[in-house]
């Protein structure tokens, strides 16, 4: 067990290094930030000075080494736009993103898994067909479109929910979050529903097909021959086998959700790190882009790691001896 963890941690570190290299290489070819910092028609000496100040005159491998060394200390430089520490800006906005991601994840799990299970258990029922149609539609909808439709309908047309922005922040269980206030909740509903839709549809489909596949297995038939009533076969035998792979799905979905916050936050003007990323891309603010990618990479790698470990615990077939 211990060796397994160590092995995975080692791979984790390797992956992060690879990502850092790629990020560094790519951002170093993204436009020349020097021109953003100096006045128009600045004299060559000024340009030289700024270039040296930013450390851009050193050879690439050296720049990379400095980059890594700084990164490990959490120093990604200062934003070109507002001269504040890049990582700090991202971390500051992380809680807002986390709010919608968590709510979206909960929504899709609480609705998606039961729907998928029931629809997979009774595949010919009307409920199942409706769920199927909905889930195919769900993965066909562009998430930005969903957001726009929801805004138009609930905010502009009906006027029951706010158009954009994050609600008032309060304290819940010692954490400062907008989920602590009713106003906060009214603001979070639309963005998290928009975010949840794709994941919801995916979870329904996977749970459903998992259930159907498991119902065809031999052990299900054997259980029936023991006299186990149909319902128990479905929810006692097939279900547990179906839910085990769902854990890995969740891990992957968290990654996708974080990726899609870029769009959701843009549409709803939600002050999270997704919106920060898009703004930074448009203004070629390299430090923030680099910091974001690596921050998010660490999160993904970490999530995958947790999921792997979790899997070992919940699937009895995995024997690490």
């Amino acid at each position: 067990m211990f060796r397994f963890i160590v092995k995975r941690l080692f791979q984790l570190v390797l992956v992060l290094f690879a990502v850092s290299l790629i990020v560094f290489l790519f951002t170093s070819v993204m436009g020349n930030p020097v021109y953003l910092m100096v006045k128009e028609n600045a004299p060559a000496a000024d340009i030289q000075a700024v270039t040296a100040a930013l450390g851009l005159d050193k050879p690439l491998p050296v720049q990379y080494a400095i980059f890594v060394k700084n990164a490990l200390q959490g120093n990604f430089g200062k934003s070109y736009m507002n001269h504040l520490p890049a990582l700090g800006l991202i971390v500051e906005r992380f809680p807002a993103t986390l709010e919608i991601v968590v709510v979206a994840l909960l929504l899709s799990a609480l609705i998606g898994i039961p729907c998928g299970v029931v629809s997979g258990a009774y595949p010919k029922s009307r409920f199942s067909r409706a769920v199927m149609a909905f889930s195919i539609a769900g993965i066909s909808m562009p998430s930005f479109w969903v957001g726009m439709v929801l805004i138009y309908f609930f905010s502009l047309h009906l006027g029951v929910l706010p158009v954009s922005g994050r609600g008032t922040v309060g304290t819940l269980l010692g954490i400062r979050t907008s989920l602590a206030t009713l106003n906060g909740w009214s603001h979070i509903v639309l963005p998290s529903v928009t975010l949840a839709l794709g994941t919801l549809a995916t979870i329904i489909r996977l749970t459903r097909s998992g259930m159907q596949e498991n119902m065809k297995q031999d052990y299900v038939r054997f259980a029936k021959s023991k006299g186990v009533p149909r319902r128990t076969v479905l929810f006692g035998h097939a279900l547990k086998n179906t839910l085990i792979p769902v854990v890995t799905i969740f891990g992957m979905q968290m990654g996708t959700l974080i990726a899609f916050t870029t769009i959701t936050e843009t549409i709803f003007a939600w002050p999270g790190m997704g919106k920060l990323l898009i703004d930074s891309i448009n203004s070629l603010d390299r430090p923030i882009i680099a910091a974001y990618i690596l921050f998010v990479a660490v999160i993904f790698v970490f999530i995958n790691f947790i999921v792997d470990i979790l899997y070992v615990f919940i699937d009895p077939r995995i024997d690490l001896q």
């Binding site: 992956v15 992957m252 990654g255 996708t256 974080i258 990726a259 870029t262 993904f300 790698v301 995958n304």
Partner: peptide, 8 residues
């Protein structure tokens, strides 16, 4: 590559 979301 698969451990990162394609959109990102």
């Amino acid at each position: 590559q698969l451990s990162f979301p394609t959109m990102l």
